[in-house]
């Protein structure tokens, strides 16, 4: 096993632990913290794939800003401690397991089995800020502008909702 595979496995393990923690832990704050861990480690996985731009954006936006807002809201609400557990086991659990396994098999059959587990196939330096910026402002300038208008609409809408009197 090469060094990069060991690094990937370690990071992936952490990310999976974080993701599992989000759904398995009862305490909402700890659950949110697991999500922070997951986002943070995901950023590092992007680094190992040679995409520093998206990795640092992942850490800055998700781990640094969005999760802080999540925590803010969770802490603002009444502290409930552990959530009450249902008396009988959830009947949807079996269905979830089946569908999850189906997803895993599909991913294996369509992606991993035909291609094998290989190193990233991107062009060299495809993930640097320069490359991302150039492609944003040449090939993808139209979607980029549309998304920025969408975000503006979102901002204005949220202000409309939040303020009673403007």
């Amino acid at each position: 096993m090469s060094a990069s595979e060991i690094g990937f496995l370690a990071l992936a393990l952490l990310a999976v632990i974080g993701a599992a923690g989000v759904v398995l832990i009862d305490n909402p704050v700890r659950s949110a913290l697991c999500l922070v861990l997951n986002f943070f480690v995901l950023g590092f996985i992007y680094f190992t794939l040679g995409a520093p731009m998206i990795g640092i954006t992942q850490i800055m936006v998700y781990a640094g800003a969005i999760m802080v807002l999540f925590l803010f809201v969770i802490m603002m609400l009444k502290r409930q401690g552990a959530m009450a557990k249902p008396d009988k086991p959830d009947s949807r659990l079996g269905l979830a397991v089946v569908l999850g396994l189906a997803l895993a098999v599909t991913v294996y059959a369509t992606v991993i089995a035909p291609q094998g587990v290989t190193l990233p196939l991107g062009i060299k330096d495809y993930g640097t800020p320069q490359a991302v910026g150039v492609s944003l402002f040449t090939n993808f300038v139209w979607p980029f502008e549309v998304v920025s208008v969408l975000l503006l609409v979102g901002i204005v809408g949220s202000i409309m909702l939040a303020k009673r009197r403007i």
Binding site: F40, G64, A65, P129
Partner: peptide, 9 residues
């Protein structure tokens, strides 16, 4: 960006 990301943590 690294500085900003880490300071936001």
């Amino acid at each position: 960006l690294y500085v900003l990301a880490i300071s936001s943590l």
